[in-house]
Design a protein around this nucleic acid. Structure first.
Lengths: 349, 349
DNA sequence: TTGAAAGCGTTACCAC
DNA sequence: GTGGTAACGCTTTCAA
């Protein structure tokens, strides 16, 4: 591999000059620049990123910490991230988090600009201590879909989203409304769905509906969990006529469980999700649309701005939510007993 | 940030000793080691990866080049990659390819161990010239789902897969079988679907079925393309009774187009895909299962082995394919005119 | 405008 | 075993 010294020798100039040419310094005579450029060409020289990084004190890399990056919602966000990064000079290193240990290890592993010039954290809360440490080390951090203090943050109003979803069901006449979400005490520290649950509870209260604890279940945001949880709900003596799942992934599971139980959506059960991932439109799932792509995109943009020396204030950017009504919600069956749903309920599988 | 020199000073030893401790050299007296370790602890010292990389000539990073990484099939592979990387000391940098230019830029940007210690390329062919350059530069390369010479490669027998899919349809009595795939002259150089098409053509020939060129269409491997292409096929004067889509993504589009046309699957049209992505099982799509996760996983394992100084021979690892029959294929409608399908065909939307 | 040389933080070789 | 000291390849003063 040719080095800058080789280029300098070939061009008959000093290393400094080559470096200046490389970095677009204006203080190089055109003739000299041309000589250097042709030497570079001739030798097919490429600067060594490691050496450059060591010397400049930064590594031209952005770290993205993301839990379960293969989940549809994470992918949508990453799509936004990738699109925002396109054309920039930064490489993207992916820190996948599948366990709370991962999360801490990854965050702890970033101690300065030698590992990542900036950090984008998705859906995971970051301890204030870490945030301060990172900031002090000159590594800007941007949080997406998670709380944190002192750094730019991109969020949505999950509580309002929870309200919108629940209100939609209430408006349809449902009075026994189940809720599926993440355990508030989950080890990852996810908080978004807590807020959605809060919104759900608020609307219930506003509507004068009782909170039935047995209709609230927690589990991971994937289809299988949703399926199992919904099966439990449907097996209740007084099952719900509607379920608000705090993610589309869980909602997909609810749909499956309904089918398993020989019931029909939305006739026997209304289902509303949260996120509006691509799949939801295929399936016709009613949901609360969250701008996933945009959140990822805005996240990098803020990070890039910080890196460009244009430090964005630690503002909380709230992205809009939107109710998307499709075909999995319908008016509640009219009955004297609002908790009674139509027979038969045998398992069709 | 404390440096190795600080640690050395605090421990009252030379830098070399600290380095030896850091790298687990056995030639350090226990007492000395303890002193160094406590100094490291005290200062909360972490080695600078850039400096380490520069000195050692490698960067502890694996590059993964992947086209359209948000596509379901790519995600499945990446999931395998991530799982194989878990526990290793390598970071994962993602090179997303959305255009042929991207591909070349990314490949060209890797010139040595300073950018990536190894390269995993998914679904994209790599020119022999690049392969040789990379190998010469000491950067091992592993190809997954793409051809290349002189490097370990993980593939499936796409031609056999194409045969299996088509034979399944033939066995069901279909005689007018459409095919959806990638344009063989696509600018990315994808070749997997060409082989699937070859398998399709072979089975047609074996079965004494004519090749109807108008029933073969090309487009990107996404749902929208599949939908548009299938709509064209269904609008043919003599439409097919079955369609083999060379990816599940396109097959999903076929399903949508069928619905658009007011037809029913599998009554009016049988559909078979390729890949068996997660969604396919939800939808009940008949398909040819390709071990996507496993291919990614095996890919990294081979790369890691190469990096561990255990260079795997440039073998072609062929992963098994499997026909997964679900509910989108059924016997061909029995008619005198095999090209005639049931009315009505009005657009139901 | 340019060259020389001092870092940047490690590793690795060479003496002791 | 251990310390001293060249690399590693680049950027960035500092003089000229």
């Amino acid at each position: 591999m040719p080095t800058i010294a080789d280029v300098a020798a070939h061009a008959g100039v000093g290393q400094g000059t080559v470096s200046r040419v490389l970095n677009g310094s204006p203080k190089v005579r055109d003739a000299t620049r041309a000589r250097v450029l042709s030497a570079i060409e001739l030798l097919d020289y490429r600067p060594n990123p490691l050496a450059r990084g060591l010397s400049r004190g930064r590594c031209q890399t952005l770290g993205v910490v993301v839990p379960f990056f293969t989940h549809a919602s994470a992918i949508e966000r990453l799509r936004g991230v990738a699109s925002g990064l396109d054309g920039s000079r930064y490489d993207l290193v992916l820190f996948n988090v599948e366990s709370p240990v991962h999360r801490d290890e990854h965050i702890a592993s970033i101690t300065g600009r030698d590992r990542a010039d900036g950090l984008l954290v998705l859906s995971l809360p970051v301890a204030d201590r870490d945030l301060q440490r990172l900031t002090a080390a000159g590594v800007p951090v941007v949080l997406v879909d998670a709380p944190g203090t002192g750094v730019p943050t991109v969020v949505t109003d999950d509580r309002a989203g929870g309200r919108v979803a629940t209100q939609h069901l209430v408006d349809l006449g449902h009075r026994a409304i189940g809720y599926l979400g993440h355990d508030p005490s989950n080890p990852f520290g996810f908080t978004a769905t807590d807020d959605r649950e809060a919104g759900y509870l608020e609307v219930l209260a506003d509507a004068g509906l009782p909170v039935r604890r047995e209709l609230i279940r927690y589990g991971p945001h994937d289809r299988e969990a949703g399926r199992a949880l919904a099966a439990e709900l449907l097996a209740e003596p007084h099952p719900p006529t509607a379920i608000f799942a705090s993610s589309d992934a869980q909602a997909m599971g609810v749909l499956a469980a309904t089918e398993d139980a020989g019931l029909r959506v939305p006739r026997d059960l209304s289902v509303i999700g949260f996120d509006d991932v691509e799949l939801s439109s295929y399936v016709g799932l009613t949901t609360v649309r969250q701008p996933l792509f945009e959140s990822g995109r805005l996240g990098v943009e803020l990070l890039l701005a910080a890196l460009a020396g244009d430090p964005p204030p630690p503002t909380v950017h709230a992205l809009p939510l939107e109710l998307v009504v499709r075909s999995t919600t319908a008016p509640a069956p009219r009955r004297h007993d609002p908790n009674h749903i139509s027979q038969p309920r045998g398992n069709a599988r």
